[in-house]
Design a protein around this nucleic acid. Structure first.
Length: 465
RNA sequence: UCCUCCAUAGCUCAGUUGGUUAGAGCAUCUGACUGUUAAUCAGAGGGUCCUAGGUUCAAGUCCUAGUGGGGGAGCCA
């Protein structure tokens, strides 16, 4: 739908309708020229490229043109013409220019020149106006859309799981507390502890660390569901791969075993990468040129490569036999460290790896126990550069086995009674996995810091904007 | 949270064994140029050297602490 006769830059650049009258609105990237002619590069975010506005200076008010500086917002009406200059095929010969808002060139922080990503993080309110963040945000949108499309096309239902939760059973990390109690003078019980029965929900509540347990409830009715929402971890993690607030995709499939789970994960991620290549080529080419010249090759190779599948035990054997010296010694039962995962993916197999059948002691309570009594049907998809991009498992559907594991781990049964009931009433084998959305975006964009693939990152000591 | 590196103009950085008035490129401003492509050329303005202490005749430079940031690790997605 066209808005007020305005054409997007994206469509103007494709157009060959020379001589037609057009209107475009956007933000000035650069202006250059002399007293006779001026060139304005205008961008509206619809595409990484700018449309060039050609201004015959004598035809315009001098004071108006003086307001057109980098960052100013304009409405331009004019004629679409074949460009006389090199560097673009079409441009707009301006007839009328309206300045919506100026951007004082003395104080506007974005220059024509490139800026460091660290600096741009400090001006996250303005960084969407840069080429890099425009590209990242468009790719991020495309990936969000593709996720919904993939699941919708494959018979999944999008399920909204709660953001506020009273269950601490997931054990996926430290949680942010949610409360309306007076922080200076909270009600106390007879033992002097904070009395959460007086709190808003009548019990202690937190921000969710995962929608999985609730997604399982949906899967035992709708067969295939997925969640896609914000997730919160109060871990003091200061790394380029962690956020305190991030988005997670969690499909959950009834009647799927671990093999189906792996097949789905691999198909899903290849679909998303293919979607990016098909729909974000301009942005990916820019990122490939500016940040990571191997990006496009890496994305293409992922699609054509079968992920290497092996068990945790086999992986341990490979690591033990390798001549590489690891900082953390390898032994069956340990949780694999980044150096181990990187070795497997980047040195040994040189392709994505799916590891299954992990020791049960290093995995969550809900994972299906294998007959060996030692391992569970967990699955981790390990990617080059970013490590674990997907973690999933077949779930334990046997009530007796599940509750005995819950008791072993001292998880309060009163917190998970509802979860247990799905195993009591019409239980089915089922599986699922979680994909860290920002880690996917890291992989697809080739960016190296997770704070640069989310518009307004939340991390320890940073909740600005 | 641990290890490590860093903090100097709007941005990116240089600044020697501690020693006059702290520099460059880009950006900005002024001027020149009739088709530019991060335009080019000439000139000008622009600094609480992160903060607080300390050592010293003298600190951007050395020491201590703090704050913020990068990289690595842990926790994890």
């Amino acid at each position: 739908m066209e808005h007020e006769g305005v054409t997007k830059v994206k469509d103007l650049l494709k157009s060959t309708d020379y001589g037609s009258e057009v209107k475009v609105k956007g933000w000035v990237r650069t202006k250059r020229g002399n007293k006779n002619i001026a060139f304005i590069a205008l961008n509206d975010g619809s595409i990484i490229h700018n449309i060039q506005i050609v201004v015959d200076v004598p035809n315009f008010n001098e004071d108006t043109l003086a307001l057109i500086t980098t960052g100013a917002s304009l409405s331009v009406s004019g004629t679409l013409v074949e460009s006389m200059g090199k560097g673009q095929t079409v441009e707009i010969h301006a007839k009328d220019i309206e300045v919506y808002g100026t951007a004082d060139s003395e104080t506007y922080p974005l220059q024509k020149k490139g800026h460091s990503l660290e600096f741009l993080r400090e001006i996250a309110h303005l960084r969407p106006r840069t080429n890099t963040f425009g590209a990242v945000l468009r790719v991020r949108h495309a990936m969000s859309f593709a996720i919904h499309k993939y699941f919708n096309d494959n018979g999944y239902y999008y399920m909204h799981t709660p953001i506020i939760t009273a269950s601490d059973a997931e054990g996926a990390g430290e949680m942010f507390r949610v409360t309306t109690l007076d922080d200076k003078n909270p009600p106390l019980d007879e033992n002097g502890n904070v009395d959460y029965t007086k709190d808003f929900f009548g019990k202690e509540t937190n921000m969710t660390v995962s929608g999985q347990l609730e997604a399982e409830l949906g899967a035992t009715a709708l067969s295939q569901v997925y969640t896609f929402g914000p997730t919160f971890r109060a871990e003091n993690s200061n790394t380029p791969r962690h956020l305190a607030e991030f988005w997670m995709v969690e499909p959950e499939m009834a009647f799927y075993d671990i093999e189906d789970d792996m097949n789905t994960a691999e198909d899903f991620i290849k679909y998303l990468v293919q979607y990016a290549l098909d729909n974000c080529s301009d942005d990916l080419e820019f990122l490939n040129k500016m940040y990571d010249t191997k990006l496009l090759n890496r994305l293409k190779s992922i699609i054509d490569t079968d992920f290497k599948r092996l068990t945790y035990t086999e992986a341990i054997e490979i690591l033990e036999k390798s001549t590489k010296k690891f900082e953390f010694p390898v032994k069956w039962g340990i949780d694999l460290q980044s150096e181990h995962e990187r070795f497997l993916v980047e040195n040994h197999f040189k392709r994505p790896v799916i590891l299954i059948d992990y020791p049960k002691d290093i995995k969550a309570f809900y994972m299906k126990q294998n007959d060996d009594g030692k391992t569970v049907r967990a699955m981790d998809v390990l990617f080059p550069q970013i490590g674990e991009i997907i973690g999933g498992s077949q779930r334990e559907e046997n009530y007796e086995k599940l509750i005995s594991r819950i008791r072993e781990l001292n998880i309060p049964e009163k917190d998970v009674w509802w979860y247990l009931e799905t195993r009591k009433f019409g239980t089915v084998p089922h599986s699922g996995f979680g994909l860290g959305f920002e880690r996917l975006i890291l992989f697809v964009t080739g960016m190296s810091n997770i704070r640069d693939v989310i518009p307004f990152p939340r991390s320890p000591k940073n909740a600005e904007f």
